[in-house]
Nucleic acid binder design. Structure first.
Lengths: 362, 362
DNA sequence: TGGCGTTGTTTAAACGTTTACTACAGTCGA
DNA sequence: TCGACTGTAGTAAACGTTTAAACAACGCCA
């Protein structure tokens, strides 16, 4: 008469599959098979087992399951920070798709430090995540690319899959998926919008060499200027990172140095735009009456300040990343390895046409 | 002469601790102990092992580690949604503290659905997370409380720990930690601020019975009104959820029904305030000149719209949750089980004193 | 020289699953 | 009536760690 945790649910040891098997009067293998549902079983046995599971409040041990070879149940995402709306929205997409596929979502943050990024990828490798999704811009020197390529190979070797989300590919022979969105096209489109409404002196906020995202955006900006035959003035490209207070600082310093030598501002992202707008206002300049302002991302701050901006499909980015990675891991099929999602302008109320001297007042 | 993956890192099977042991010429146990660093070892052995680890690019298998009894390396957080700033900031705190403690962070989202919340807790139980942090408000009926209490006990039984973050306790004998912040006090303070500047007709946005957070906030609002001997008018409490568009809708509908019968708006949170502000503006009412507006949370939208609001220590909430849970799990010491973090008003520029007929113009 | 801590290492037994085999009834066609 | 299937269930061997317990080597002291 062995009195185990079976009848007494206050036992100190959590219920295992063995307890369930004993309680239901079947073997451990049967319980495992019935729970995973990947095997025929007699209805009577099935209901006996399910009843035992309910009565003992059994939940499987994910570690054991993972060890024994069943495919992992988790998807990893690595971002700079969770509170940045950009990353949050991609994370939401990842999370949503992961839930749909029955996976858990492990999140790591790096604070933008490449070293922590590497360390986190390593952690995810330990964790045997089914895929590791790396989100966002980053310094992209050769040493970094080289090293990340090694990590990608290590992940592939372990049956996992690296996904680069919103950043460029590592190289031709690196086993990494890429899900990008069209930074250059978006920047080109919105700069063209400003140009076509008559603006010629457009301040670009957030230039940052070697960072992939700002680099692409400024490239689109320059391309549009060139196509409109507007001479390129490096003095209009203000350097700085992509945070709100930076936008504030940039405009403030610029206006402190002298009266505005621009009629429009293209902020590298919406956060920057929000900061810029505040600095403009504090200096007595109204958007869009005195200065036109556009951003990039179409994230929460944009709607609040009526900002014309470029919409980026953040959630779609995250969802696509998960979908591609899982299909890849499952089928090994040679489907798309590189996807580029489109962007488009969202018109709000932050741009006014320039009235040139002598031009008709529309 | 066994030619294993040792020298050829392109082998298909990932490196195990056995490979490392063989490569270093020591036993598996020695490798394990040296890597965990919890045991004395000769420097020579140590360097041999570390070299093997480097050469083979070995990473431990977290599943095996978890199975074999080493304490789990992960902390779970369950939120409504990742893109809501409120949750994002708490999540950031959890993530930060988890990283400090060397833990990974598993995130689950529920979309506010209690059933998904239960399911997710169950998943985290499978995952053997060291603690499960439940964030945010929720319908709080007795059936829910009862069931969640069962889950708390199940987690405790498995050596884990449920933490309720920003929501009230489940009951006296439930093994769950609670980290709250002072909703009532904050709402009381900011309502008092409006009252002391002369406002008497204060519209409350976001009443929602049975949801813990709005309930506490409205309680503070009512208490302040009572203390100022302002008669309670239920018609001033507008029902709705806590989203931006809801704030917009509420004000819009109210103004469509007739001219404003209030001089100030207390929005249940900052998002609501942002929506309300937009609706007011579209109706030709300026904040704060025509209508005063306050919010709750002090999250990103607040600074952008110069909103006077109640600061909630979101990140601190998340960090405290992790810290408490881990101390609890480690020491079993009977330290604090219930912490209430303070809130305070952040003054910006969204409130104007009421000028009463006959009163001095200050 | 034998007994005894120390120090460092090995042996082997868990941990809780999954899954390739194996076993055993029935059923069915020959 | 017998062997070949078919549908279920059981046996036992992984999976890759950790860790208690056993063990070897090495002074050190009596």
């Amino acid at each position: 008469m062995v009195r185990r945790a079976a009848s007494d649910s206050e036992g100190r040891r959590p219920t295992t599959i063995r307890d369930v098997a004993a309680h239901a009067g079947v073997s451990v293998a049967t319980v495992s098979r019935i729970l995973s549902g990947t095997y025929p079983s007699a209805p009577a046995t099935r209901s006996k087992v399910m009843r035992a599971v309910r009565e003992l409040d059994y939940v499987a041990n994910a570690n054991a399951r993972g060890l024994a070879g069943a495919s992992s149940r988790s998807v990893a995402i690595i971002v700079n920070s969770v509170i940045s709306p950009h990353y949050a929205h991609v994370a939401q997409g990842v999370q949503t798709q992961a839930a749909i596929e029955g996976k858990l979502c492990i999140v790591g943050t790096t604070g933008g430090d490449p070293e922590r990024e590497f360390a986190t990828v390593q952690l995810m490798r330990e964790e045997h995540a089914e895929c590791v999704i790396l989100v966002g811009n980053v310094v992209a020197d050769d040493a970094y690319r080289q090293r990340m390529a090694d990590y990608a190979r290590a992940l592939a070797l372990a049956g996992s899959q690296l996904v680069l989300c919103g950043r460029p590919a590592l190289g031709p022979d690196v086993p990494a998926l890429v899900v990008e969105y069209d930074n250059i096209g978006g920047a080109y489109a919105i700069t063209s919008h400003l140009l076509s409404t008559g603006h010629r002196r457009i301040l670009f906020l957030g230039r940052r060499d070697n960072y992939t995202t700002p680099e692409s955006r400024i490239a689109g900006y320059r391309k549009a200027l060139a196509d409109y035959r507007v001479p390129h003035d490096p003095g209009l490209e203000v350097e700085g990172s992509m945070e709100r207070r930076e936008g504030y600082r940039m405009i403030r310093e610029r206006l402190a140095a002298g009266p505005p030598d621009f009629t429009a501002v293209f902020a590298g992202n919406d956060l920057l735009a929000a900061g810029a707008r505040q600095a403009l206002r504090e200096h007595g300049l109204r958007v869009p009456d005195d200065i036109s302002l556009v951003g990039f991302d179409d994230l929460p701050p944009a709607a609040d300040i009526d900002l014309t901006t470029v919409h980026v499909p953040h959630e779609e980015l995250g969802r696509t990343a998960v979908r591609m990675a899982l299909e890849r891991v499952r089928d090994k099929s040679d489907m798309a390895e590189h996807v580029m999602l489109g962007t488009h302008i969202v018109m709000r109320d932050s741009v006014r046409p320039v009235i040139r001297a002598g031009a008709p007042t529309q």
